[in-house]
């Protein structure tokens, strides 16, 4: 073989390897092969590295709160599956309390609507709520824009991400969505079993999976473990008489219904339910097996307690553990840099 050709070939291979490495550091949005197509409108907000990184920085930016103390990451902690671990309801600015449990930032690209009551139907409009809520960040977006404009880094970061100078509502929201849409949890043991990547359920997990499919799977639909519907799961009316979905539809049939939450990463996201009333998963299963309460609009699928023996509950718990994604809660791409 010609020496020159060989050298050229080696150089070319080297170049390819380099570019491959670069590509591997940022891949944009990738749908996990066992997930359906996403709901988010990526055509209006194509993922780029600069926008994603800007969104991540904004997510951890306390300037979004009135006194620069609270960031999104305050109540959505990565190690807690992006929830406010240990808090039934969250405390925001001045330690004021909200009325609902902080939900996980996870697989949001597949969500049709946001919040426990589904009051927001577009991810781009979601951040407006905590920013302006007087018990969360209590800030106005015009104020935030002013603070970001005065910051030494943000003006150039926005310029870089959007191709021209300027910070406005649209750009802030689109950057936030880039981060939120990319925070994907899809590498639990369950996923690896489903994708035939070599992992196998233990006997207990397998039994738990069967029981899960029989008793839980119609609402906590695979693979996202929610069917995105709003239901009253019989936990009874909370102390604050939270009316749930009714507050945004004014439809009596929605009274006391809440969004069915995903069951991924439960080991990190205690406490459970819209008001965080259950600290342990045992209590959640005990509720379904023993103490479903008949309040208005109780879900028809939950008329009567679920027939779960103590052993069944242990199997289900074993299966639920397979939905934990330890790589997700430690993924450096999602962490404050």
């Amino acid at each position: 073989m010609d020496t020159k050709l060989l050298i050229a070939f080696i150089l070319l291979t080297g170049l390819l390897a380099c570019s491959k490495e670069l590509m591997e550091t940022f891949k944009g949005f990738e749908r996990p092969s066992n997930f359906p197509n996403p709901e988010y409108h990526f055509n209006n907000n194509e993922i780029t590295r600069a926008k994603f990184e800007l969104g991540r920085k904004l997510f951890y930016e306390p300037r979004f709160s009135r006194d620069n103390t609270i960031s999104c990451g305050t109540c959505h902690i990565q190690s807690a599956g992006f929830t406010h671990h240990g808090h039934d309801v969250s405390h925001g600015i001045d330690d004021l309390l909200g009325k609902r449990n902080s939900p996980p930032i996870m697989n949001l690209a597949w969500r049709k609507d946001f919040f426990w009551d589904g009051g927001v139907f577009d991810m781009d409009l979601q951040p407006v709520v905590p920013i302006m809520n007087p018990v969360e960040m209590d800030e106005t977006i015009p104020n935030v824009i002013r603070k970001l404009e005065e910051h030494p880094e943000y003006p150039s970061l926005f310029n870089e991400a959007f191709g021209s100078p300027g910070i406005d509502t649209e750009r802030i929201m689109k950057a936030f969505s880039q981060f939120m849409a990319m925070v994907i949890s899809s590498n639990s043991k369950y996923d690896k079993v489903m994708r035939n990547e070599g992992a196998k359920f233990t006997d207990e997990e397998e039994k738990g999976y069967r029981l899960f499919q029989q008793h839980c799977g119609s609402c906590h639909k695979e693979p996202l473990f929610t069917d995105e519907s709003f239901r009253n799961n019989g936990i009874g009316i909370g102390y604050n008489n939270d009316q749930g979905r009714y507050e945004v539809t004014l439809n009596e049939k929605d009274m006391y219904t809440f969004k069915v939450p995903s069951l991924r990463n439960l080991s990190y996201t205690s406490p459970y339910m819209h008001d965080g009333r259950f600290i342990k998963l045992d209590a959640v299963l005990d509720h379904y097996a023993e103490s479903i309460r008949d309040t208005p609009n109780l879900d028809p699928l939950l008329r009567g307690n679920l027939p779960l023996s103590p052993e069944d509950k242990l199997f289900i718990l074993a299966f639920l553990k397979t939905l934990d994604d330890p790589g997700f809660v430690t993924d450096k791409r999602f962490a404050e840099q």
């Binding site: 919040f115 409009l125 407006v128 302006m132 977006i141 945004v248």
Partner: peptide, 21 residues
Amino acid sequence: RKGVLDPAGGMEDGMYWGWNS
């Protein structure tokens, strides 16, 4: 949603409900 339709209007005299888009 630019100008008067910007959802970023303040709480006091804002004309947008964030929690119920």
